[in-house]
Measured scan of single mutants.
Amino acid sequence: QIGDLVNIDLDLEIVQSLQHGHGGWTDGMFETLTTTGTVCGIDEDHDIVVQYPSGNRWTFNPAVL
């Protein structure tokens, strides 16, 4: 839910696979593998929007978090 702290604890290849159809994966997202983020929103597809200390916001398949 919004305000929750979240981490990704999966291998890169699994995360990339799960992201298909959920915003995809870009090289800029590598920070998300090692950094705790804060849930800042849930979109119309029930994907999770997470903000990181860098100021970046990324959209994830809920199965990734």
Score class of each variant (00 low, 15 high):
residue 1 Q to F: 15
residue 1 Q to Y: 15
residue 1 Q to K: 15
residue 1 Q to R: 15
residue 1 Q to D: 15
residue 1 Q to W: 13
residue 2 I to E: 11
residue 2 I to V: 12
residue 2 I to L: 11
residue 2 I to S: 12
residue 2 I to N: 10
residue 2 I to G: 06
residue 2 I to Q: 09
residue 2 I to P: 10
residue 3 G to A: 01
residue 4 D to R: 11
residue 4 D to H: 13
residue 4 D to Q: 10
residue 4 D to S: 12
residue 4 D to V: 06
residue 5 L to D: 09
residue 5 L to S: 15
residue 5 L to K: 15
residue 5 L to C: 07
residue 5 L to P: 09
residue 5 L to Y: 13
residue 5 L to T: 09
residue 6 V to Y: 04
residue 6 V to P: 04
residue 6 V to W: 04
residue 6 V to T: 04
residue 6 V to C: 05
residue 6 V to H: 06
residue 7 N to F: 13
residue 7 N to W: 10
residue 7 N to P: 03
residue 8 I to R: 02
residue 8 I to A: 03
residue 8 I to M: 03
residue 8 I to T: 03
residue 9 D to K: 09
residue 9 D to V: 06
residue 9 D to M: 10
residue 9 D to C: 14
residue 9 D to G: 08
residue 9 D to A: 09
residue 9 D to Q: 11
residue 10 L to W: 10
residue 10 L to V: 06
residue 10 L to G: 12
residue 10 L to R: 01
residue 11 D to R: 09
residue 11 D to S: 12
residue 11 D to L: 01
residue 11 D to K: 08
residue 11 D to W: 01
residue 11 D to E: 14
residue 12 L to E: 07
residue 13 E to Q: 09
residue 13 E to L: 07
residue 13 E to H: 12
residue 13 E to P: 12
residue 13 E to W: 08
residue 14 I to W: 08
residue 14 I to Y: 10
residue 14 I to L: 13
residue 14 I to D: 10
residue 14 I to M: 15
residue 14 I to P: 01
residue 15 V to L: 15
residue 15 V to F: 11
residue 15 V to W: 00
residue 16 Q to I: 15
residue 16 Q to G: 06
residue 16 Q to K: 13
residue 16 Q to D: 07
residue 16 Q to C: 02
residue 16 Q to V: 09
residue 17 S to F: 11
residue 17 S to E: 14
residue 17 S to A: 11
residue 17 S to C: 11
residue 17 S to H: 12
residue 17 S to Y: 13
residue 18 L to T: 02
residue 18 L to Y: 09
residue 18 L to R: 05
residue 18 L to V: 06
residue 18 L to I: 04
residue 19 Q to Y: 02
residue 19 Q to M: 01
residue 19 Q to P: 04
residue 19 Q to G: 03
residue 19 Q to E: 04
residue 19 Q to K: 03
residue 19 Q to W: 00
residue 20 H to G: 06
residue 20 H to T: 11
residue 20 H to W: 11
residue 20 H to I: 11
residue 20 H to E: 15
residue 21 G to N: 06
residue 21 G to V: 03
residue 21 G to C: 02
residue 22 H to L: 10
residue 22 H to T: 00
residue 22 H to R: 04
residue 22 H to Y: 03
residue 22 H to S: 02
residue 22 H to A: 00
residue 23 G to I: 06
residue 23 G to R: 02
residue 23 G to L: 05
residue 23 G to F: 03
residue 23 G to M: 05
residue 24 G to E: 04
residue 24 G to V: 04
residue 24 G to L: 00
residue 24 G to M: 02
residue 24 G to R: 02
residue 24 G to T: 00
residue 25 W to H: 06
residue 25 W to N: 00
residue 25 W to L: 02
residue 25 W to Q: 07
residue 25 W to A: 10
residue 25 W to D: 01
residue 25 W to S: 07
residue 25 W to Y: 06
residue 25 W to E: 08
residue 25 W to G: 06
residue 26 T to H: 11
residue 26 T to C: 15
residue 26 T to I: 10
residue 26 T to K: 10
residue 26 T to A: 14
residue 26 T to S: 14
residue 26 T to M: 10
residue 26 T to Q: 14
residue 27 D to V: 04
residue 27 D to E: 14
residue 27 D to R: 10
residue 27 D to G: 09
residue 28 G to S: 13
residue 28 G to E: 14
residue 28 G to N: 13
residue 28 G to W: 06
residue 29 M to S: 01
residue 29 M to Q: 08
residue 29 M to C: 00
residue 29 M to R: 07
residue 29 M to D: 05
residue 29 M to T: 04
residue 29 M to K: 05
residue 29 M to A: 03
residue 30 F to L: 15
residue 30 F to A: 15
residue 30 F to C: 15
residue 30 F to D: 13
residue 30 F to R: 15
residue 30 F to S: 15
residue 30 F to G: 12
residue 30 F to W: 12
residue 31 E to H: 09
residue 31 E to M: 01
residue 31 E to G: 05
residue 31 E to S: 04
residue 32 T to A: 15
residue 32 T to H: 00
residue 32 T to G: 08
residue 32 T to D: 10
residue 32 T to F: 06
residue 33 L to C: 06
residue 33 L to P: 02
residue 33 L to S: 03
residue 33 L to I: 06
residue 34 T to W: 08
residue 34 T to R: 13
residue 34 T to E: 14
residue 34 T to K: 15
residue 34 T to N: 13
residue 34 T to G: 13
residue 34 T to D: 14
residue 35 T to K: 06
residue 35 T to W: 02
residue 35 T to S: 14
residue 35 T to Y: 12
residue 35 T to V: 06
residue 35 T to G: 08
residue 35 T to I: 03
residue 36 T to Q: 14
residue 36 T to A: 11
residue 36 T to S: 14
residue 36 T to C: 08
residue 36 T to E: 12
residue 36 T to G: 03
residue 36 T to M: 08
residue 37 G to C: 05
residue 37 G to N: 01
residue 37 G to K: 02
residue 37 G to W: 01
residue 37 G to D: 03
residue 37 G to A: 01
residue 37 G to S: 12
residue 38 T to F: 10
residue 38 T to Q: 09
residue 38 T to A: 09
residue 38 T to S: 08
residue 38 T to D: 08
residue 38 T to G: 03
residue 39 V to H: 07
residue 39 V to P: 10
residue 39 V to D: 00
residue 39 V to W: 00
residue 39 V to E: 04
residue 39 V to G: 08
residue 39 V to L: 02
residue 40 C to I: 13
residue 40 C to T: 10
residue 40 C to E: 09
residue 41 G to A: 15
residue 41 G to W: 12
residue 41 G to P: 04
residue 42 I to G: 02
residue 42 I to C: 09
residue 42 I to V: 12
residue 42 I to W: 14
residue 42 I to A: 07
residue 43 D to R: 13
residue 43 D to V: 06
residue 43 D to E: 08
residue 43 D to C: 05
residue 43 D to N: 15
residue 44 E to I: 08
residue 44 E to Y: 11
residue 44 E to C: 14
residue 44 E to F: 10
residue 45 D to N: 15
residue 45 D to I: 02
residue 45 D to L: 09
residue 46 H to K: 13
residue 46 H to R: 06
residue 46 H to F: 13
residue 46 H to A: 13
residue 46 H to M: 15
residue 46 H to E: 14
residue 46 H to Q: 12
residue 47 D to N: 15
residue 48 I to T: 09
residue 48 I to R: 09
residue 48 I to A: 05
residue 48 I to E: 00
residue 48 I to C: 12
residue 48 I to S: 02
residue 49 V to D: 07
residue 49 V to W: 02
residue 49 V to M: 09
residue 50 V to S: 02
residue 50 V to T: 15
residue 50 V to R: 04
residue 50 V to H: 13
residue 50 V to P: 00
residue 50 V to E: 09
residue 51 Q to M: 07
residue 51 Q to R: 12
residue 51 Q to T: 09
residue 51 Q to E: 15
residue 52 Y to Q: 00
residue 52 Y to W: 01
residue 52 Y to N: 07
residue 52 Y to E: 01
residue 52 Y to G: 03
residue 52 Y to L: 01
residue 52 Y to P: 08
residue 52 Y to T: 00
residue 52 Y to S: 01
residue 52 Y to K: 09
residue 52 Y to R: 02
residue 53 P to A: 08
residue 53 P to W: 04
residue 53 P to S: 05
residue 54 S to D: 08
residue 54 S to E: 02
residue 54 S to F: 07
residue 54 S to C: 05
residue 54 S to P: 05
residue 54 S to K: 00
residue 56 N to W: 01
residue 56 N to V: 04
residue 56 N to Y: 15
residue 56 N to A: 07
residue 56 N to P: 01
residue 56 N to F: 03
residue 57 R to I: 15
residue 57 R to S: 11
residue 57 R to Q: 09
residue 57 R to M: 10
residue 57 R to C: 09
residue 58 W to A: 03
residue 58 W to T: 04
residue 58 W to Q: 05
residue 58 W to S: 06
residue 58 W to F: 08
residue 59 T to C: 13
residue 59 T to G: 01
residue 59 T to W: 08
residue 59 T to Q: 08
residue 59 T to S: 07
residue 59 T to E: 03
residue 60 F to G: 03
residue 60 F to W: 05
residue 60 F to A: 02
residue 60 F to V: 05
residue 60 F to S: 02
residue 60 F to Y: 03
residue 60 F to M: 14
residue 60 F to C: 03
residue 61 N to R: 08
residue 61 N to E: 00
residue 61 N to F: 01
residue 61 N to V: 00
residue 61 N to L: 04
residue 61 N to K: 02
residue 61 N to T: 04
residue 61 N to W: 06
residue 62 P to K: 04
residue 62 P to E: 08
residue 62 P to A: 06
residue 62 P to L: 00
residue 62 P to G: 06
residue 62 P to W: 00
residue 63 A to M: 14
residue 63 A to W: 10
residue 63 A to V: 12
residue 63 A to L: 13
residue 63 A to S: 08
residue 64 V to D: 00
residue 64 V to W: 00
residue 64 V to R: 06
residue 64 V to A: 11
residue 64 V to M: 01
residue 64 V to K: 03
residue 64 V to I: 11
residue 65 L to N: 02
residue 65 L to R: 00
residue 65 L to I: 08
residue 65 L to E: 05
residue 65 L to W: 05
residue 65 L to Q: 04
